[in-house]
Design a protein around this nucleic acid. Structure first.
Length: 820
RNA sequence: GCCCUGGUAACCCAAUGGUAGAGGUAGAGGACUUAAAAUCCUUUCAGUGUCGGUUCGAGUCCGACCCGGGGCACCA
């Protein structure tokens, strides 16, 4: 029976994919294209095997926006590429004894095929792979520009070292003392490494977030703020007894200077080492320092561990009252934050108080907060209060005291206002093969010499015959005919830098490259970038909330300062899609709860899977596959498709003669779907489409019938709405309705405002906020008329009996509330 | 400990400060069918985590607390 048949889910896929390949509905930036431009970007994938359910969700979300904007008449750029440098390829190559290139490009081909099957609305003429020399050449070029500006530099310092991956890690890649990739405990190693000076941009990275307020998820902004961790305070100088050089300390509480009762320096700092010289406690100090070094980061992270330290047998002089303060060394002060030295105010800082009690040091209250004396309670009082025991500061509030003392110290050249950041410079050197070579040559005579731009790219050699196994130094260092070259400056024998760049460098500017991905002459064309960028809508997982987004923002600002960009924020709007889980936890083969995307596509078809993922909930929420019903989605898509089969009117029929009630439902739905899409409520947009399908079904079966022009109008509106989430079904409907492909370019129907008006609606009559009756009123009813109707209403009248009316609130045409 | 989020029916989720239910899943009943599937129709189920406040009116705004998710944390 015709009305009960179901459409062929795989048939439509095979039918329309080749047609779309010919039409290329999502090709962007044709020379004669007058449509206004928009840029939608999905975070590009790492090519580790085939696409999984998480990709399917993310790309479905990006597609809704891209396809909606195309329908709304924009020239949408929606490119895709691969973040194809990185460790998994190298590890696979080690395992298989092959070149990382093979594994990488094979996987890219697999993923690309899946994306095509999935009907992602990508512009396939804008594709990039970060592991192509044509791409990473420009990584090297940008490195050199940063180098010229002093934003790329090399230094010796203790770095995070993963003993398993045998490479250094950025601070951002260490999670709870463990390697983010392999969960091995991270150790410290002193190495000479390259850094990008992201700390120069700390203030702007923080302050420019004002532009993103309301456009990025609050959660991400908060995470970035926490990560940058700006703290505002003061530096204060303390004279050291028997020394010529003073010590500078950093504090956020200069108001408590009178309460300082000792000083602490970081045990592993140069300062501690110099203070201990000649103190007579050298050997005890060395012993303590070595025991601290032996402890892992994990031990250090335990905040409840008892305080330890050693008195250095030296004294500092408190600049405000001349008191002698013992100087201690401890591991609770960090060498690489502030100045590596603090004044300890145990009364008003819990850590200092814990230390003071452990070491029997004095505690002096200088802020009266009205709480119990920390000497008795053991709890430092850190809140607001009035200054006491503080000479000229007595009686001041905390805030006033901070301002006063900072000014006084500055006047006497004893200190100044200061800022500090939790953010550290970005360590980019990696001792691995499969990454961008650092374009620097080390020459005994000339030192570090940048590779001339004309000689870029510094290409990776073939991995053939190279031992890629992690050995603590870069595998490239052992490739003698690659590493040994003539110094570009003096021509004498020299060596290339054998480290490669962190792969986050690759993804920090790729969104610029898409504007002209095959440009051989430059990293990007500033004129084209100006046309397309910044990215109007970025879509990706919250896992990159700190690393990738912070680095991209930094690159954008740095390139802006070089005059290459006219904007300072790369991503105008950000949508973080949630994760797809199974039974409450992340899907994984090892957990045995993996749902294979390809199997779901085989069983239910591409469209049903896409609809399921979109409809399961708000985009930002995690969804559980157990709550998702692809068979239910397929049922819905069949219902929609059958509507098109039941349309009996001809193409081009005059809609204005159609059934009014259905037309109103159509136009209201279209308005609601638009609004939902624009506010990221894609699940609601699908629900509204379902409603329209239901209403149309009813109209066909028991209302105006399939010949009514409104039914055609509805079917077309459904097809266009579905084109955002179910491209195959939508195209099939469009074709059944007698149109040429592609429905993706049909254009969003123009909404007739006259059809949005209701001819009658229900007004609520309340007494004291309680509903007494509902009456039908014309939408144009005035407050006065509605009020009259309310008072005349028998239900209301009964409730009002004998009472005096205090007040009447009228909101025509929806509500009257009579207060008695 | 500090900060950001969220808490509505059996479940996933909707509701410009104005009728708590749009949509779906699951369940129940019915129509069609030899039967099943599919399809269509009908239908059960909460007063919105707790307490207080603002308001004529609060799921929605404010405060405190409870529970879940996330970030930062010996950063002075």
């Amino acid at each position: 029976m015709a009305e009960h048949e179901a459409y062929d889910i795989h048939g439509v896929e095979a039918k329309w994919l080749p047609v779309w390949d010919k039409i290329e509905p999502f090709k962007s930036g044709r020379a004669d294209d007058a449509r206004p431009k928009r840029y939608v970007l999905d975070m590009f994938p790492y090519p580790s095997g085939d696409l999984h359910m998480g990709h399917a969700e993310a790309y479905a979300m990006g597609d809704v926006i891209a396809r909606y904007w195309v329908q709304k008449g924009f020239n949408v750029m929606h490119p895709i590429g691969w973040d194809s440098f990185g460790l998994p390829a190298e590890n696979a190559a080690i395992k298989r004894g092959s070149d990382p290139r093979e594994w990488t490009y094979e996987n890219i081909a697999v993923q690309k095929a899946s994306m095509r099957r999935y009907a992602c609305s990508f512009d396939w003429d804008r594709v990039l792979h970060t592991s192509d020399p044509e791409y990473y050449k420009w990584n090297q070029w940008i490195f050199l520009q940063l180098y010229k500006k002093g934003l790329a530099y090399r230094k010796d310092s203790p770095v995070n070292w993963c003993p398993h991956c045998q490479t250094v890690l950025a601070n951002e890649q260490v999670v709870g003392g463990l390697c983010e990739r392999c969960d091995t405990a991270v150790t410290k190693k002193k190495l000479n490494q390259w850094y990008f000076k992201i700390t120069d941009y700390a203030d702007r990275l923080l302050d420019d977030m004002d532009q993103l307020e309301g456009k990025w998820p609050e959660k991400v902004l908060q995470m970035q703020r926490n990560w940058i961790g700006r703290s505002i305070g003061a530096e204060v100088m303390f004279e050291i007894e028997g020394a010529t050089e003073p010590i500078t300390i950093y504090t956020t509480r200069p108001d408590t200077l009178h309460g300082a009762t000792f000083m602490v320096v970081a045990v592993d700092s140069a300062l501690a080492a110099s203070l201990v010289e000649g103190s007579g406690v050298e050997s005890a100090f060395a012993q303590y320092r070595d025991s601290v070094k032996a402890a892992s980061d994990i031990d250090r992270l335990a905040t409840d561990r008892p305080k330890s330290g050693i008195f250095l047998n030296r004294y500092a002089i408190n600049p405000v009252n001349g008191e002698k303060l013992q100087i201690w060394a401890s591991d609770y002060v960090l060498a690489d934050y502030g100045t590596g030295a603090i004044m300890a105010v145990p009364a008003h800082d819990q850590r200092d108080l814990d230390f003071a009690r452990a070491m029997k040091l004095p505690v002096k209250v200088v802020v009266d907060t009205g709480e119990t004396d920390p000497n008795e309670s053991g709890i430092a009082t850190v809140g607001e209060g009035t200054l006491v025991n503080s000479a000229s500061l007595n009686g001041l509030s905390k805030e006033a005291a901070i301002a006063t003392i900072t000014e006084e110290l500055a006047k006497q050249n004893l200190g100044c206002a200061a800022k500090n950041y939790r953010l550290r410079d970005w360590l980019i050197s990696r001792q691995r093969f499969w990454g961008t070579p650092i374009p620097i040559v080390h020459c005994d005579a000339c030192g570090e010499v940048p590779v001339p731009e004309s000689e870029l790219p510094v290409e990776l050699p073939s991995a053939q015959g190279i031992d890629l196994k992690p050995a603590g130094t870069s595998p490239l260092g052992a490739v003698s005919d690659w590493v040994n070259i003539a110094c570009p400056q003096c021509g004498k024998p020299a060596k290339r830098d054998a480290d490669t760049m962190d792969t986050f460098v690759d993804s920090s500017w790729y969104f610029l490259r898409y504007t002209n991905p095959n440009d051989q002459a430059q990293a990007f064309d500033s004129a084209l970038v100006k046309e397309w960028a910044p990215v109007d809508q970025y879509v990706g997982g919250v896992t990159h909330a700190i690393l990738h987004l912070l680095y991209s923002r930094f690159f954008t600002k740095a390139l802006h300062d070089m005059g290459l960009l006219d904007f300072t924020e790369p991503f105008t709007r950000l949508l973080n899609q949630g994760m797809v889980q199974m039974d409450g936890s992340a899907m994984s083969k090892s957990r045995g709860n993996l749902v294979r995307l390809s199997e779901q596509l085989d069983t239910h078809g591409v469209d049903a899977v896409r609809v399921s993922l979109i409809f399961a909930g708000p985009p930002e929420d995690d969804i559980d596959w157990a709550d998702v019903s692809p068979s239910g989605s397929l049922k819905f898509l069949n219902r929609a498709w059958r509507i098109s089969k039941d349309v009996e009117s001809k193409v081009g029929v005059d809609f204005t003669t159609g059934d009014l009630a259905l037309r109103k439902a159509i136009h209201r739905s279209l308005r609601d779907i638009s609004l939902a899409v624009e506010t990221y409520r894609f699940n609601v947009a699908v629900a509204r489409t379902m409603e329209l399908v239901n209403a149309t079904r009813k109209a066909i079966d028991t209302g105006c019938g399939g010949l009514d022009p409104a039914v055609r109008e509805a079917a077309q509106a459904i097809a266009i709405s579905l084109s955002l989430v179910a491209p195959f079904t939508a195209e099939e409907m469009w074709s059944v309705l007698g149109h040429q492909p592609s429905v993706a370019l049909a254009g969003w129907p123009v909404i007739d405002p006259a059809l949005l008006e209701e001819e009658a609606l229900v007004a609520i009559l309340q007494v004291n906020g309680k509903i007494k009756d509902r009456i039908e009123v014309p939408p144009t009813i005035s407050d006065v008329d509605l009020e009259k109707l309310a008072i005349a209403n028998p239900q209301v009248a009964a409730a009002l009996a004998g009472a005096t009316i205090q007040k009447i609130i009228t909101r025509a045409p929806k509500l009257v509330n009579i207060v008695i």
